[in-house]
Nucleic acid binder design. Structure first.
Lengths: 251, 251
DNA sequence: GGGCCGAAGTTACAACCTGTTACAATTGGA
DNA sequence: TCCAATTGTAACAGGTTGTAACTTCGGCCC
């Protein structure tokens, strides 16, 4: 199972103790780094889940190919994230590098025996799996009933928050993946992604950095972006009052 | 976290040993059964994850309420399934009963100490979590790029397979949930669900049982149903050849 | 350096699916 | 029986997609 960044990647870094294997990061630290270019995949859906990977640098793409050849990207992984904690025997999805990427790997046995020794690591793994599940749920909500614009804004907002966590001061987003990748992740077509970005630029929400063409975007109005994303954190305020039967219309 | 039925529920039943706590089912067996009618929920999203539940009979509904009041159902749970193995501190979603339902419950502590004692139970929990993740991935694929008809057929096919596992001989499906529930689960509107079912009846794929109105459906042409569902198990055959960049159109 | 070429991205327009709205039909309980 | 809730049907509108252009970018060769 891949790990859905956010809190977790952050978490992994923050609690870094001196040595031993007090956090998952330490487990990987002695492994050699491997380099991956765009086309060779780390593993394929259905392969025996022999390894667990940690992203050192770059971006990974987690995806499934369905019967008619279409691709569904179920997640992206960034530096610090861990992938392959698939508790089953086989990977549930394929993984390859979006751009030039370096990873470390542990065999399943190394990983399992590593976490067996330490209750602390077990807790960390549990937290990672839980985060991954939460990310999957959020993605289901996004795909269930958000418009193209809401999806695009949610996606950008997530990237923005991530770059803020990493200590970026400017409101700029690096998009290592292609428009096609974004489309396959958000359940849209490449044209809709393009059109939506253009619309957001016209609304003065975004601005294209002249630098690296269209893979660097600056956010002019982050507040508007958050509003357009439309996920006010699933309204954990208005809970106990209305757990009514039907939902409103519009999907 | 809820557990996504299929193999798992089956698994839980099959390996039932004599006594002790050799499988998760045994952990629950001594707990008293509780009855739930439609409106009182088991727990709400954001609540402290204090309990783990096992469905004894009936059907549960797992859902989130988003900011504008819409409801997204992320899963249904049937007899034998386990819900609430949320490894985090709080539930990721709400749960209530679709129809009259009975459950057993363990406190988080009871559950945790139960599985801590037995490596076998830990393995079982891992498998359940893995299955849950697989179900979430499948749902993402469904919501990403399937048409209304494909979604409806996938849903019915899943229920059909479940009833076959339980030893049903006739090709009939019981739908305990309402059309609105199905709509919120498949990311459609109630009208589209209605239209699609009507279309499938006209195609002689389905037939309405005159009995319990529209909550009992018989499948006339299961093969066609499977074809229309369009998930040829994510084409695990055509793997190693084309892991190409872009996907085809149509989402 | 200049020009050709392909890949990636953008834009325009028509077509289609689904959501919206409104109303009818059926069911089940008061 | 009436009434309310659920479900089914139909016409319409709207957003997203599909198709097909065009533009931009980057690499390659001369």
């Amino acid at each position: 199972m891949y790990i859905a960044s956010e809190h977790t990647a952050h978490f992994t870094r923050k609690h870094a103790p001196s040595d031993g294997a007090n956090c998952l990061r330490d487990l990987f630290s002695k492994q050699p780094v491997e380099h991956r270019s765009g086309n060779r995949s780390l593993f394929l859906e259905g392969d025996e889940a022999a390894h667990v990977f940690q992203v050192v640098e770059g971006t990974l793409r987690i995806f499934k190919i369905i019967s008619d050849g279409r691709r569904v990207i179920t997640g992206f992984l960034y530096a610090g994230d861990i992938v392959g904690i698939s508790l089953g025997k086989r990977y549930l999805y394929s993984a390859d590098a979006v751009s030039s990427t370096t990873v470390r790997r542990l065999t399943r046995n190394q990983f399992d025996s590593g976490i067996d020794e330490s209750p602390r690591l077990r807790t960390e793994v549990s937290a990672l799996v839980s985060d991954e599940m939460a990310a999957a749920q959020d993605q289901m909500v996004l795909l269930s009933c958000k418009s193209a614009e809401e999806r695009m804004c949610s996606f950008l907002l997530k990237l923005l928050k991530k770059s803020e966590l990493l200590g970026e001061r400017r409101l700029s987003i690096e998009l290592p993946m292609s428009r096609q990748d974004i489309a396959d992740y958000l359940g849209l077509t490449i044209e809709t992604v393009s059109r939506t970005i253009t619309k957001l630029i016209n609304k003065r929400v975004l601005r294209i950095e002249n630098a690296v063409a269209r893979h660097s975007i600056s956010v002019e109005r982050p507040v508007l972006l958050a509003q357009l994303a439309g996920d006010d954190d699933d309204c954990s305020d208005m809970r106990h009052d209305l757990v009514v039967q039907g939902s409103q219309r519009r999907h």
